[in-house]
Write a protein that binds this DNA or RNA. Structure first.
Length: 535
RNA sequence: GGGGCGGUAGCUCAGCUGGUUAGAGCAGUGGACUCAUAAUCCAUCGGUCACGGGUUCAAGUCCCGUCCGCCCUACCA
């Protein structure tokens, strides 16, 4: 991808009545790191996140709290979801709420077009309705009745029989798109990633698609169907459209053309909506389908999918309060292969923090800055004739930068970080072998000492740049300590795809005392209580 | 029932289209060093690659079967 290309990346929009946990945090951080990488590489980047506020569940929980759904949503968004972004240091460019006018207008324009073009028709929806829940149930939510209800299907929650009801509403001709979708998966194997997710989607679509009921009339918390305001739009149809409406669909064609199509990062549970329904909707509307739909895996706690009901849900602040936001970002992207499930444990988090961040990167920065301060009064020395060892470091840096960019391009941040980390490991070994503290005792080795420390400092310069999307806080601290800004400018301005070019740090720069990048943590046990529980 | 993904050193995982004595990190053990966040560096211990067949000159890597785990099967990242 050449410099200046559009890179529009989205997270799913969250249902605000959930309590933010590290799974949400993981999604946000992954999208943010990819966005920061592309942005700093010079691509025309835009990152979108937001909240999905319509639907019966929101209506019901709001009512239970004596509020209107709008008030309830405002409160949750302000108290939980916006703060989550701050907790994790997310640099999103936009935050869309499906209750915003720009969204509702865009959605209405979209469904009107589909209606006008004949992709929507009136039909009868038939489904099992639970009076207790006041909603239609899927087969999976029903169980065989027992006792007096023997032989009947009952609601899993109320254990009472459900009724087979019919409702007149609107349907989207999704079945029309089966062949085109299959052709899409075939022609663009990287449309759905990773491979395992693609397989699931292809198999699913091959089994046949039915039309989708896209309106509801039993409650009114949603976007009205423009030609029949007694109906509101099915929440998923509404929610998926956020990716388009936020970019200006139907309202700001110039911006929409500039941003679209998007790259969607989603959890694998909502893969089908994004890889089947969403592209079908776009095809119907004559809009280009997304560039990619990437499904990441689950966080496993104790070998099982993390879940609130099993009390394995962990609030992001529990981690950031002890380890900091940088460590959160680093840990989840480094330790988990993006696209696969990953095990989370406090022990692993703590071990990686200590071994990799504190002892590896943090200590490296600390020892280099300390030696420049001690042996050169804080002035970065010039390098002279490089030896093979010095050249090996340069080669490592060059390769790491190339490999990291390639890995980020293919949605493999874990590999990108591993590639960058070769610099940390090589540099620590290099310093130990070159023994600058020995060179410092011999005035005749003055130039050699300067070259060794320049090499180390320049390596740190490259590290700061390459790691800034992952560790924005620590790398900024390091950038300041290296005294790099006066000659090179702000860290965020350093072109990432040029980070591997040797010799950027100016000799003569003044280093300053470096506060520990990742201080040792004496008591790495989580901040008491397990997950917070919703009211 | 149908579908997807896994089962490789104590732990977390790499091993692409099959090819020399199966790798990494962490943990463990021994040593070196002192610039540094009691840190770093070197060495080393450690595996019947779930199980049973088969194809092949050659299989962790392909085929068949079995066992185990996780997930999806239309509104929880």
């Amino acid at each position: 991808m050449s410099s200046g290309d559009s890179f529009y990346i989205t997270t799913p929009i969250f249902y605000p009545s959930d309590v933010p946990h590290i799974g949400h945090g993981y999604t946000e951080v992954a999208a943010d790191v990819l966005a920061r990488w592309h942005r700093q590489a010079g691509d025309d980047t835009w990152m979108l996140t937001g909240t999905d506020e319509h639907g019966q569940k929101m209506l019901r929980t709001a009512a239970a709290g004596g509020m209107t759904p709008g008030e309830w949503a405002d409160r949750l968004v302000e108290e939980s979801w916006i703060p989550l972004l701050d907790t994790l240091d997310i640099a999103n460019d936009d935050f869309i709420r499906t209750t915003q006018k720009r969204h509702e207008d865009g959605v209405q324009a979209f469904v009107s077009k589909l209606h006008d073009d004949g992709f929507i028709y009136t039909g009868e929806y038939e489904g099992y309705y639970c009076v207790g829940c006041e909603e239609y149930k899927q087969q999976s939510e029903l169980v065989e009745g027992t006792g007096p209800f023997e032989g009947q299907l009952v609601c899993a929650i109320h254990s009472k029989p459900v009724e087979l009801l019919q409702e007149r509403n609107y349907f989207f001709r999704m079945s029309d798109f089966q062949e085109r979708l299959l052709a899409l998966y075939e022609e663009r194997p990287d449309f759905v990633q990773p491979e395992s997710a693609r397989n699931e989607v292809v198999q699913f679509v091959k089994q046949g698609l039915s039309d989708l009921s896209i309106s509801r009339s039993s409650f009114d918390w949603g976007i009205p169907i423009p030609w029949d305001e007694k109906h509101i739009l099915y929440v998923w149809f509404d929610a998926l459209l956020n990716y388009a409406t936020a970019a200006g669909y139907g309202q700001d064609d110039e911006n929409f053309t500039r941003r679209w199509p998007a790259v969607h990062i989603v959890g694998k549970d909502i893969l089908r909506f994004h890889a089947v329904i969403w592209p079908a909707m776009l095809m119907a509307a004559g809009v280009e389908v997304p560039k990619h739909v990437f499904a990441h895996g689950w966080l496993l706690v104790g070998g099982e999918k993390m879940s609130k009901s099993k009390l394995t849900g962990i609030a992001p602040e529990q981690i950031t309060e002890v380890f900091g936001s940088d460590a959160f970002r680093y840990y989840f992207l480094r330790a988990i292969a993006f696209g696969q499930d990953g095990s989370f444990s406090w022990e692993d988090l703590s071990a990686r923090y200590q071994a990799e961040l504190a002892n590896g990167f943090g200590n490296l920065a600390s020892r280099v800055v300390a030696m420049i301060t001690r042996y050169f009064d804080g002035v970065v020395p010039a390098e002279t004739a490089p030896t093979d060892a010095d050249l090996a470091i340069r080669a490592t840096v060059t390769k790491a930068a190339i490999d990291a960019d390639a890995a980020m391009e293919r949605f493999a941040p874990h590999e990108a970080i591993a590639a960058i980390w070769t610099i940390v490991d090589e540099l620590n070994g290099y310093i130990t072998e070159q023994e600058p503290w020995v060179l410092a005792k011999d005035e005749a080795q003055r130039e050699r000492l300067g070259t060794v420390l320049y090499t180390a400092a320049e390596g740190l310069r490259a590290l700061a740049t390459l790691l800034s999307p992952v560790l924005p806080k620590a790398t900024t601290t390091l950038w300041d300590a290296l005294g790099a800004a006066p000659a090179l400018g702000a860290l965020a301005e350093q072109p990432l795809r040029d980070a591997g070019r040797w010799g950027q740090l100016a000799a003569g720069a003044t280093v300053t005392k470096l506060a520990g990048l990742f201080p040792r943590i004496e008591d790495p046990t989580p901040a008491a209580a397990p997950a917070r529980v919703t009211a």
